[in-house]
């Protein structure tokens, strides 16, 4: 394999991994995809280490005469992560096609670029609306009454829309969830004043369900069990920060309310 092709192939694998990781793919899946992509184009030795904050790949391959070639390695720092599982599925599908159908590296790169640029399947308004649906039906599972159902629906639409917009503007995750938590508690308190039948606690639980880092906690523990200690700890840390941020936000609003003389 020529030097230039090797480099292009490595970049392709890196871009594929980057899209997956940035959109919520698990680390082992990213490692697996990179290894498969590189091995399919004849790299003898491929090793990749993926953590939630970066991708490290190195490959080695003897050249045409069977002599030892130079070793290549690439690092990529990942700063922002969001969840867009459709893109993970698309890259997964792409890597399967790339391995089996023998696409050229150039056309593969083109496909990856279109995947990267493709808009998410649901826009902000749809996400906000479904956020409302989620939280309201979730508290129905916990035994909420009709008024609580309605208030959780309305309030969560606001909360979800706010955190989506803040995430789009690339605020730190701590800030986003702090604001989200405070807004959730504030709206719940307001709605709680409307009728005595609305339990503030239940509405808040519904609202923060769209923010809780349950997935990060679960993935963190799972990675740790599987032996990916770095990503396990990183995800657990992420989950902790988000949980603390929500708690700060909610706690701030509730405390302020009691301080101003309102009962809970």
């Amino acid at each position: 394999m020529e030097e230039i092709t090797r480099k292009k192939m490595l970049v392709l694998a890196l871009v594929a991994g980057e899209i997956m990781l940035k959109n919520g793919g698990e680390t082992y899946r990213v490692e697996d995809t990179i290894t498969r992509l590189c091995k399919s184009r004849g790299f003898k030795y491929v090793e990749s280490i993926v953590t939630p904050t970066g991708i490290y790949i190195s490959v080695d391959h003897p050249d045409e005469d069977g002599r030892e070639g130079p070793m290549h390695s690439f690092n990529k720092r990942i700063k922002n992560r969001k969840i867009n599982l459709e893109k993970v599925a698309m890259v997964n599908d792409f890597s399967r096609r790339f391995v089996q159908e023998g696409l050229t590296i150039e056309s593969g790169m083109k496909i990856l670029k279109t995947i990267e640029k493709s808009p998410p399947p649901f826009n902000n308004y749809q996400v906000a609306f479904f956020g409302g649906i989620t939280s309201s039906f979730f508290i129905l599972l916990l035994g909420a009454n009709f008024l609580e159902f309605l208030s959780a629906f309305a309030a969560t639409i606001f909360v979800t829309y706010t955190i989506t917009i803040l995430a789009e503007k690339e605020f730190a995750s701590f800030t986003i969830h702090l604001v989200g938590g405070a807004l959730a508690a504030f709206l719940a308190i307001l709605l709680g004043q409307v009728s005595g039948e609305i339990s503030i606690n239940r509405v808040i639980i519904g609202e923060i369900m769209v923010m809780v880092p349950g997935v990060a906690i679960t993935n963190g523990v799972r990675d740790s069990i599987a032996g990916d200690l770095i990503s396990g700890m990183a995800r657990a840390g992420e989950a902790l920060i988000v949980a603390v941020a929500i708690a700060f936000g909610v706690g701030f609003a509730l405390n302020l309310w009691t301080f101003l003389g309102g009962g809970l």
Binding site: I83, L85, K87, F122, V127, G131, G132, F137, T160
Partner: peptide, 20 residues
Amino acid sequence: KFVYAYIATIGFAVLFQVPK
């Protein structure tokens, strides 16, 4: 409750932008 959970999970799926 199954129906409620069904709808709630679809909502979560939209939040995580799963393929339609």
